[in-house]
Simulated assay, not measured.
Amino acid sequence: MAKIIFITGASRGFGRIWAEAFLKRGDKVVATARNLDTLKPLSQQYGSAVLPLQLDVTDRKASFDAISKAKEHFGKIDVVINNAGYGLFGAIEETSEQEARDQFEANVFGLLWVTQAALPVMRAQGHGHIIQVSSILGIFTLPTLGIYNASKFAVEGLSETLATEVKGFGIDITLVEPNGFSTDWGGASAAHSKPLPEYDGIRAAFQEGATPDIFGVPEATVNAILQLVDTKNPPLRLFLGKVGLPAAKQQYAERLATWEEWADVANAAHGK
């Protein structure tokens, strides 16, 4: 049976690739983007199977209106994919107040507004699946991406909590955590803080580590997303790419070792 999929940030990158994959197999897609013109090719090719909507996810009212239009148009919403967002490159000290606020508005609050708008619809219909596009940088961090890291850590905490709150309503939550992929995430889609020369060395070391082999092929994610949407018991977390799991194992081994080393101090701090 065809599913109704609501995708934010469908103009390019993962959002566009996944929207087309769903449409090709016969699903119905509500595709949103800030610029409606970018969605015209989808409408021209797939006709009434796609509902294009202009949406800036940082506008809470607009997010609720978009979900309402989707429900009214297709009758239900089976899956919401919160894909809209962008990367902010810059050391913590380099980041301006506005840059930091804008990053959280898009990556955290935009996701929150769409999620809040979708939940009543899914509760009423007794089922739903909300897929939050996070990042491996919501599991561990990299230098010169501190505010982006922080936004994805926020998405992780928000979504993990949400999963415990809505499971009883028949709503599943999945955090999709891609490693780097060859999209324009680090190019035209990215924002950059004004650099300070003091961080040039850290920046150079980071760039040297970004070798081509660590970047995945975006189109290769399609089967994973289709399988995720179709499974009856979706996982809370799913890495996309081969970088996340070994890096996470190393990071968590180091964390556990530190906690164990300081366990006596931590226990004494309990007071009884």
Score class of each variant (00 low, 15 high):
Pro178Glu: 05
Phe169Gln: 09
Pro212Tyr: 12
Ala210Pro: 01
Ile171Pro: 03
Gly201Ala: 15
Ile202Asp: 04
Phe169His: 12
Gly209His: 03
Phe169Met: 06
Gly187Trp: 06
Gly180Asp: 01
Ala188Glu: 04
Ala188Leu: 04
Ile173Met: 05
Asp200Ala: 15
Glu219Tyr: 08
Phe215Lys: 04
Glu177Val: 13
Ser193Arg: 01
Glu219Asn: 03
Ala205Phe: 13
Lys194His: 14
Gly209Tyr: 01
Asp172His: 15
Thr211Glu: 04
Ala191Cys: 10
Ile171Asn: 04
Ile214Ala: 03
Gly209Ala: 08
Glu177Ala: 08
Ile171Phe: 05
Pro218Arg: 07
Tyr199Val: 09
Gly180Lys: 11
Ala190Ile: 04
Gly187Leu: 11
Gly186Phe: 14
Gly209Asp: 00
Gly180Ser: 10
Ile214Asn: 02
Phe181Met: 03
Ile202Thr: 14
Pro195Thr: 00
Gly170Ile: 12
Ala188Asp: 03
Ile214Met: 07
Ala188Met: 10
Gly187Ile: 01
Ile173Tyr: 00
Ser189Val: 12
Trp185Ser: 07
Asp172Tyr: 15
Ile171Trp: 06
Ser193Met: 10
Ala204Phe: 08
Gly170Ser: 08
Trp185Asp: 00
Phe215Leu: 01
Pro178Phe: 10
Gly186Tyr: 07
Asp172Gln: 14
Lys194Met: 11
Trp185Gln: 06
Glu177Asp: 06
Asn179Tyr: 10
Ile173Phe: 07
Arg203Met: 11
Ile202Asn: 10
Gly187Phe: 08
Gly216Pro: 02
Phe206Gln: 06
Gln207Pro: 11
Tyr199Thr: 06
Trp185Ala: 02
Lys194Phe: 13
Pro197Leu: 14
Arg203Cys: 03
Val176Trp: 08
Phe181Cys: 03
Trp185Thr: 06
Glu208Cys: 06
Glu208Asp: 14
Phe206Asn: 03
Glu219Trp: 10
Glu198Gly: 12
Ala210Asn: 06
Asp213Val: 05
Gly186Cys: 09
Thr211Asp: 05
Phe215Tyr: 09
Thr183Trp: 00
Lys194Asn: 11
Ile214Leu: 05
Arg203Asn: 06
Tyr199Gln: 05
Ala204Leu: 06
